[in-house]
């Protein structure tokens, strides 16, 4: 009976790979924030922010991120003055004033990044019905789960980078459609986008954003940097989480050891 159960389990595991996955799984990258001691590379996510600001923010909102977040610990490491400067370069819609009118004013630390479009319908009108997704949680809103049994290994390996792996693959995954496939001018072929036909034209080009720290200004580098930035955007407390996690684990192991010895001592009398 037990053997039957075991054979059954193996059959299920192999069945999963038999069902065809038409979508290529994003290859795994190495990220500085991966693993139990992962941290953000401050210079990298600063560069990523520049890519967002200079390229992506024309179409993509980031409404859950405030300018003050740029200066908070565990982030890109802007000073409060620098974050204030960034804020002041944006116009924020505010009001009504005493006359009852809405008005634009320079951004403050407490403001959130403004959306490039006033509402969803306006955005869709701009892009032939497609809505550029908001970036606030996108690094956690993407990524495919590897089938069983790899998913068990991922739990042990602490793989939580499915989103960044996908975003990086997508940004570097534009290509020509296969022979015989023609796309309308509003669609572009991407090797990793589900269904392959994405509404965004390739957004990055070499030399598009200026880097002041000597990092190569290639599309691949932009993709990597903006992806790391988006991971911080989605999980701003990642470093604190892993740091506190380590402290908690050590504490629990010590406490567990003491509890085990206590239990052994309590029960020793009985035998």
């Amino acid at each position: 009976m037990r053997k039957t159960a075991l054979i059954l389990a193996c059959a299920l595991a192999t069945a999963s790979s038999a069902v065809a996955e038409e979508q290529a799984l994003a290859p795994r990258q190495s990220w500085s924030f991966a693993g139990p001691f992962g941290t953000f590379d401050r210079a990298q996510i600063q560069r990523g922010f520049h890519v967002y600001r200079d390229v992506c923010s024309a179409c993509h909102a980031m409404k859950h991120v405030a300018f003050r977040n740029l200066a908070q610990p565990g982030g890109p490491g802007f000073s409060e003055a620098q974050a204030k400067q960034v804020a002041s370069e944006y116009r924020i819609n505010d009001g009504p004033n005493d006359k009852g009118e809405m008005f634009d004013r320079p951004g403050r630390l407490s403001d959130f990044f403004p959306s490039p479009d006033p509402n969803e319908q306006a955005a869709r009108a701009r892009f032939n019905g497609a809505l550029p997704p908001d970036f606030s949680e996108i690094a956690k809103a993407r990524g495919a789960e590897a089938g069983f049994p790899w998913v068990v290994f991922d739990a042990v390996r602490q793989y939580q980078e499915g989103g960044p792996d996908y975003i990086y693959a997508y940004l570097t995954g534009y290509g020509d459609p296969p022979a015989g496939v023609t796309l309308p001018p509003t669609q572009f072929w991407n090797n990793y986008f589900p269904g392959h036909r994405t509404a965004m034209r390739p957004p990055l080009q070499n030399g598009q954003v200026e880097y002041t720290d000597g990092t190569p200004t290639t599309t691949e580098q932009y993709s990597r940097d903006v992806t790391a930035f988006l991971m911080w955007v989605a999980e701003p407390h990642l470093e604190a989480r892993k740091r506190i996690g380590f402290q908690v684990m050590i504490f629990l192991i010590v406490f567990g050891g003491l509890a085990y010895l206590s239990k052994k001592k309590v029960w020793a009398d009985l035998h």
């Binding site: 003491l258 509890a259 206590s262």
Partner: peptide, 11 residues
């Protein structure tokens, strides 16, 4: 041992 366990637990 019991005191140590209790103190760690309280912390």
């Amino acid at each position: 041992l019991y005191i140590a366990t209790s103190v760690v637990g309280a912390v």
